[in-house]
């Protein structure tokens, strides 16, 4: 129990840098498309680590199943909304930034 708990804490802590770097990317990247890259991918991995850590600390299969469901839903929602935002931007003729 103690080992699993500590392992879970390590996983949660591992997730934090992904969230932070996703946010930094959101602030630093030049245009809407590259920002979408930062937000979707980094946050998804960060959330995956947090869910993994919490599942290791969970007290039954029940909580684990619920956590996995949450992760799956966020995965679907974030990738779909990423596609939708990019699509809307392309249709509005927003040019992607490219290295000069």
């Amino acid at each position: 129990m103690g080992l699993l708990h500590n392992l879970g804490t390590v996983c949660i802590l591992l997730g934090i840098p992904f969230f932070i770097s996703g946010t930094i990317g959101l602030l630093r990247f030049p245009d809407i498309y590259t920002r979408l890259h930062a937000l979707t991918k980094a946050d998804n991995v960060g959330l995956g680590f947090v869910v993994l850590g919490l599942s290791l600390q969970a007290d039954g299969w029940h909580t684990v199943a619920r956590l996995l469901l949450i992760w799956l839903l966020v995965l679907i929602a974030s990738s779909a909304s990423c596609h939708l935002v990019a699509r809307a931007a392309l249709r509005k003729k927003i040019e992607p930034w490219s290295r000069p």
Binding site: I76, A77, A80, H83, L84, R87, R91
Partner: peptide, 14 residues
């Protein structure tokens, strides 16, 4: 505009 396949499937799932 047309919703596109991704939104349609998302709605169907959600």
């Amino acid at each position: 505009e047309e919703p596109g396949p991704v939104l349609a499937t998302l709605v169907r799932l959600l």
